[in-house]
């Protein structure tokens, strides 16, 4: 099993529903976020300005610098390649935050480090992550890469995609559709 997410940058309207859904589902403290929306503007006005939105979160990388540098093993990988933090083992040293090229982690007000879990509590019960279910334009696609019929496998086969900062060498598993 290898969970992954695809994100259609052409469909996203930047409404931020995924952000709110995650905050509600996972009791994210006020002012913090496990996922976020970025607006990218490219080109020079007025000729070639291109704009798109991206919904970002932890990339649940295959090669995890955050887990490697964690001194206690609080950061770890569970089944399906999901990267999680055990709050009771985390000392809040911040090594994993320094190690993540995507700034996907933050220090929870209680002191431990928190991040996206791909809603593992929902996923292992056969549901989608909260952000995926709530998206009004269906631009988030989740599934198992090892299953050729999963929605994410299918869409990655059909469409062109890219990943962010591949040169950082983390083998990210959050794919952006062109």
């Amino acid at each position: 099993m290898r969970f992954a997410m695809a994100m259609d940058t052409k469909k996203c309207v930047g409404c931020g529903d995924c952000v709110v859904a995650c905050q509600t589902e996972n009791n994210v403290p006020l002012g913090f976020a496990r996922d976020w929306i970025v607006e990218s503007v490219q080109g020079i006005y007025p000729e070639t300005v291109k704009m798109h939105f991206k919904s970002e979160r932890c990339h649940h990388c295959d090669n995890t610098p955050c887990v490697r540098t964690c001194p206690t093993g609080a950061s770890h990988v569970i089944e399906g390649g999901i990267v999680k933090v055990t709050a009771s083992e985390c000392i809040g040293c911040g090594a994993c935050i320094e190690a993540c090229p995507y700034e996907a982690r933050y220090v929870h007000p209680d002191g431990y480090v928190d991040k996206c879990t791909f809603c593992d509590h929902r996923v292992f019960a056969g549901e989608n992550p909260a952000c995926v279910d709530v998206c009004p334009t269906d631009c988030l696609i989740f599934g198992d890469l090892d299953d050729a019929n999963s929605p994410v496998s299918k869409v990655l086969k059909e469409k062109d995609w890219y990943v962010l900062a591949p040169e950082a060498g983390t083998k990210p598993q959050l794919y952006f559709l062109k």
């Binding site: 930047g14 931020g16 952000v19 002012g31 913090f32 976020a33 996922d35 976020w36 929306i37 970025v38 607006e39 990218s40 503007v41 490219q42 080109g43 020079i44 006005y45 300005v49 939105f53 935050i97 700034e103 933050y106 220090v107």
Partner: peptide, 16 residues
């Protein structure tokens, strides 16, 4: 120009 703007709340001061 190549610009990224956060449009949702990720103004966590120690990161952004």
């Amino acid at each position: 120009m190549n610009e990224q703007i956060f449009v949702s709340g990720k103004n966590i001061p120690e990161i952004i």
